[in-house]
Amino acid sequence: MINLLMGEFKRTWIQFLRYPAEVIGGVIIITSVFYGLFISAQYMAGPAIAFGDRLDAIVVGYVLWTLVIFIVNDVATNLQLEAQTGTLEQVFLSPFGASRVFLARAIASLGLRLTLILTILLIIMGITGSRIQFPLALVLPLVTLLLAAYGLAFVMGACALIFKRVQQVLGIFQFALLFLLAAPTEDWRGPARAFANGLPMIPSTGLLRDLMARGAGLDWGQMGVAIANGLLYFALGMVVFGWAERQAKRRGTLGGY
């Protein structure tokens, strides 16, 4: 497994060196979209607007949504590219197994993704005046968010294995995730809060907003919910991906496109 991880790290680094314009362009586009929304909100609300900590919460939600989109698209996009280039069957014939290969590939690209997200966050903070905090405790809810995000990534990968083309599904899914991650679900109470805790990544997102935007301490009770949520969706993603792999092999459509 160590050799597999090292190989995927090398592959990710080579791709970054060969196609830096794509990465830089993505940073510019994502930052420009948020800045356009920010300027529009300022124009509609007038010069006397005071966002307060709401701006910080919005910035955290937008940046987390960007990170999740990178992750969720990762497995499905890689599967489609492998199918188009005719190398998908080689991945599934690997002694490590397809799920381990794509998981190692996702872990290898995580460092680059986090670096890009931090760059985008710093740029947004500079142009909007937002004051995001970075307490050490944010690592814990961030890990649970990544677990749930990778679980969803493998669900989308399973869809790519079965249906082959899932670009439109991914597009719709991105808007659904934007609503989930941008809504202030941590302020919900009663049945609505219980419902939100069952949705993917929502407990982790609320904790990260509290820590980074509001300066609150870590709620350990909610942290337990976030851990359960992350593990549940990660396990679900691996199970669904395994089922899709077996179905594709049984139908003989693994390498088809």
Rank of each mutant, 00 (worst) to 15 (best):
S204T: 04
L161A: 03
C159W: 11
F38G: 05
W188Q: 05
S40W: 09
L88S: 12
A149S: 14
L147G: 03
T12M: 11
Q247G: 09
Q167R: 15
K249R: 15
T12I: 13
S94D: 01
F70W: 14
A244G: 00
A48F: 13
L145G: 06
G111V: 15
L145W: 03
A244Q: 03
V63Y: 01
P200K: 00
A108W: 02
T31R: 09
G242L: 00
R18H: 08
L232Q: 05
G129M: 02
L181P: 00
G230I: 09
G221R: 06
L5I: 06
E89D: 10
I29M: 13
I2S: 13
A213K: 03
V59M: 10
A149E: 05
A50M: 12
R165P: 00
A182K: 04
K10R: 12
S130Y: 01
G7A: 10
R209I: 10
I162K: 08
I58H: 11
I14R: 11
K10S: 11
Q247W: 14
G111M: 02
V155F: 04
S99I: 14
G157R: 07
G252T: 04
I2H: 09
L93Q: 14
R250F: 13
I14N: 08
V63D: 07
R209D: 07
T85S: 15
R189F: 10
F102S: 00
